[in-house]
């Protein structure tokens, strides 16, 4: 079988992941109704680094990403099998509440989706529903910290009351990142975060991602191989619902083990 490569062993071998993996997936299968979207995915993802998922459209990389914070639960016909562990704990175990899980595994989507509220309320949304701030000052502090981390504070500090939907696309995406940071997650999932943005905004987001890597485990789906090469330390290549190959970004792009990976990164298909 051509999936005989064991990504698990490969990632543990890499020097940049000496500690236990943050996220650990074993034999993950995903079905939409009768259609299988993912086949036996095994993958380890390390903390405080950026991991990119690449692959042609419909290869299952977004599906896998959405498994990590159980967003697939919101789709009725979707069924997930196999184990995904976060810090050694099975996130699909019966006693795990997706609400808590999603608070520690934040997500940023392809299209910026600020809520139709003020900038302040957008960032304060998470802390409010989870009851993270005990008084207004604390809440303001959380909002400010999050916006600073997302690199948006200087641009919006004087107009926190204005609607978040009035910002530019790149600003909106950073607002959404700030919104995710505000609940102090450990992992941030990003589903093609720059695909709807212009090059300048993309550059800013990439900078931000590189910045955030120091504190969070970041997992990113991207269409752009250049972006994966620029910002990520690890890369996983998906094809037709299977994980073909995973490893340090440098190795995947310069010396892939699998023929299909080679074909994809050299532009033969995709």
């Amino acid at each position: 079988m051509d999936t005989s490569v064991s990504p698990a062993t490969q990632t543990t071998d890499t020097p940049s992941a000496p500690e236990a993996p943050k996220v650990r997936a074993r034999k993950v299968n995903v079905f939409y109704g009768n259609k299988q979207a993912l086949f036996d995915v095994n993958l380890d993802i390390s903390d405080r680094s950026v991991t990119s998922f690449i692959g042609p459209s419909g290869c299952g990389k977004s599906t896998f990403l959405r498994c990590i914070n159980r967003m697939n639960d919101t789709i009725d016909i979707c069924r997930v099998e196999g184990d995904i562990h976060l810090d050694g704990k099975d996130i699909y175990a019966r006693d795990v509440d997706p609400v808590i899980l999603r608070a520690s595994v934040g997500m940023v989507f392809q299209k910026p989706n600020p809520f139709p509220k003020s900038i302040f309320d957008n960032v304060a949304y998470g802390p409010r529903i989870h009851g993270l701030a005990s008084n207004p000052e604390e809440l303001s502090e959380i909002v400010e910290t999050s916006l600073r981390r997302a690199g948006l504070w200087t641009e919006v500090a004087d107009r926190l009351d204005e609607p978040g939907t009035g910002l530019s696309g790149g600003q909106q995406q950073r607002l959404v990142i700030a919104r995710a940071i505000a609940v102090r997650p450990e992992v941030i999932l990003m589903d093609e975060p720059c695909s709807a943005l212009d090059p300048i905004a993309t550059a800013r987001i990439e900078e931000l991602i590189d910045d955030l890597r120091n504190n969070y485990c970041i997992i990113m789906v991207t269409h752009s191989m250049a972006q994966a090469a620029r910002v990520s330390q690890h890369t996983a290549f998906f094809h037709l619902g299977k994980l073909v190959e995973a490893g340090p970004t440098e190795q995947i792009f310069t010396n892939p083990n699998d023929k299909r990976t080679q074909d994809y990164i050299t532009g033969r298909f995709g």
Binding site: R102, F115, Y125, G126
Partner: peptide, 22 residues
């Protein structure tokens, strides 16, 4: 749009919170 709901769920909001607040 579904994206707004997804954004809220991804923050860990319950369904009622999503409906009421978003």
């Amino acid at each position: 749009p579904q994206a707004l709901r997804d954004g809220s769920y991804a923050m860990g909001a319950t369904q009622a919170e999503t409906v009421r607040n978003v």
